[in-house]
Nucleic acid binder design. Structure first.
Length: 421
RNA sequence: GGAGAGAUGGCCGAGCUGGUCGAAGGCGUUCGCCUGCUAAGCGAAUGUAUGUUUACAAAGAACGUACCGAGGGUUCGAAUCCCUCUCUCUCCGCCA
């Protein structure tokens, strides 16, 4: 959520920034409602003040007839208060709902661009491997080895579900542990295992709701929503809290399954395990002082990249342009790993700086000193990393001429004795 | 799932026979005094959000409003009474 004061005082600036995102946001409407709301609030507050004054006069008054007439006065005032309060509430509801639909403003360093075609690959890491044989895709290898079962996945759950079996299931488990250990033991993150289901407030807090409800699985009867990313439960751990400056930065690494409806055209991206309705992910989340956002973002990106370096996988860092920024992000970098079998760069991590946008929504604050005023924190997050695509990259980059997969050096202590699957 | 108890400020804890209660008292914290240093002692300050005015570079200041788990209701007036919901604790049942 943006600071209403920013809209109030620099409306044109805000509008100009939002134009860069190629998104419509009702800034003018909010600006007007804000003024109407303040006027109405002023009226209501004055009426309440009158009531309060009269009521305390009644308490002190001895004369029964004066008491009676003052009671009548308050009754009359109460009718007006009720009326005005109802109006105020409508205005406030509308105002709040509109505020929740305004995206974050882009950081000045974010390149201008209208969509993902204008994202900028900024650097490449680890050479693409060369192969002297016909490459297979991960799903060809997986099905041939009995490690991937798409048909039964669809049978039990529907399209875009699959089953990992045998060595692939074990490989995924090894990769999860490898990632968590690396982030906790080497990069200084604290591990968190959170619920996979959260209430609506959390999704509003991190910005998935109200705009993106159609990508979420939920049981609205009990207000339980499947998490689309661990960002949601982990950031919201601190919802409605005031943290001490000495507790910051908070750095968490969390493994969860993630659930997304991904309502896109059938067929697109549907081969293989690249885009399912359920996938595993290790997520990195930071709660920090606003002025540390830049520095911490680059450390977070480096921490995520370190996983790919240790696995010796070719990857690149892509700077996301304004038009492709996600709703809550002020700036964002994607990490894409190269998968030679399907010949694609796959997004395995999206590292974002939200500044105080999520903190405003989730009401997460901190105090610099014991007696200083609470301020909003900044939040960051990025995958570290998304499992299916790392799996694809490992399987396709480490494939051998005879259709097997070598185990990367870094995973050997996690995978057990076999060197080849 | 059944029965009961409870939810008050950073924490503990009064108030709950409705009226200066934003809330006693204690602890903690901050500042000052005291002291060879520390402790103790003494004095003072100490919630959040928001509006109006003032100031406007900023901090601030004055006044107001809301907030005693959440949402309704009764009343001239609610932390206090009534209803609904949520959560916590204890006991019983069930269960990985």
């Amino acid at each position: 959520m943006l600071d209403i004061k920013l809209i109030r005082e620099q409306k044109d600036f805000v509008k100009k920034e939002i134009e860069k995102l190629y998104i419509d946001a009702p800034i003018d409407e909010i600006y007007e409602l804000d003024e109407i709301k303040r006027n109405k609030l002023f009226i209501v507050e004055n009426l309440r003040n009158k009531r309060k004054t009269l009521s305390s006069e009644i308490a002190k008054e001895k004369d029964a007839s004066i008491i009676q007439s003052k009671k009548e006065d308050v009754k009359t005032i109460n009718l007006r208060i009720k009326e005005e309060e109802d109006l105020l509430r409508d205005i406030e509801d509308k105002f709040n709902n509109l505020m929740l639909e305004v995206p974050n403003l882009p950081d000045p360093e974010v390149p201008l661009g209208k969509d993902d075609s204008e994202n900028i690959p900024v650097s490449y890491f680890n050479e693409k491997k060369t192969f002297d044989f016909q490459l297979k895709t991960h799903y060809e290898i997986g099905e041939a080895k009995g490690c991937l079962d798409f048909n039964r996945g669809v049978k039990i759950s529907g399209t875009r579900f699959y089953i990992l079996k045998n060595s692939f299931a074990k490989l995924q488990r090894a990769v999860i542990n490898f990632m968590l250990d690396t982030h906790t033991c080497e990069h200084g993150y604290e591990e968190v295992y959170s619920p996979f289901m959260v209430n609506k407030e959390c999704l509003i807090g991190t910005g998935q709701l109200p705009k993106f409800a159609d990508n979420l699985y939920m049981d609205t009867d009990s207000d339980m929503w499947f998490v689309p990313t661990a960002e949601v439960p982990v950031t919201n751990m601190y919802r409605n809290e005031v943290l001490n400056a000495c507790d910051l930065p908070i750095r968490h690494a969390a493994y969860t399954a993630c659930f997304r409806k991904e309502k896109m055209s059938a067929g697109k991206d549907s081969r293989g395990i690249k885009r399912g309705h359920q996938f595993d992910k290790v997520e990195l989340v930071k709660i920090i002082k606003p002025e540390d956002a830049k520095e911490e973002l680059f450390k977070l990106i480096a921490d995520a990249q370190d996983i790919l370096n240790r696995l010796d996988l070719p990857h690149r860092l892509v700077k996301i342009c304004t038009g492709d920024l996600s709703f809550s992000a002020a700036e964002k970098y994607d990490i894409e790993v190269y998968a030679p079998g399907i010949n694609e760069w796959l997004e395995v991590s999206s590292c974002s700086n939200f500044n105080t946008f999520q903190a405003r929504r989730a009401n997460i604050k901190f105090k610099r000193e014991n007696d200083s005023k609470p301020e909003f924190v900044a939040t960051l997050n990025g995958s570290g990393l998304a499992l299916p695509r790392v799996m694809i990259a490992i399987i396709e980059n480490y494939q051998t001429i005879d259709g097997n997969v070598r185990i990367p050096e870094a995973l050997k202590s996690y995978f057990g004795s076999e060197e080849i699957i």
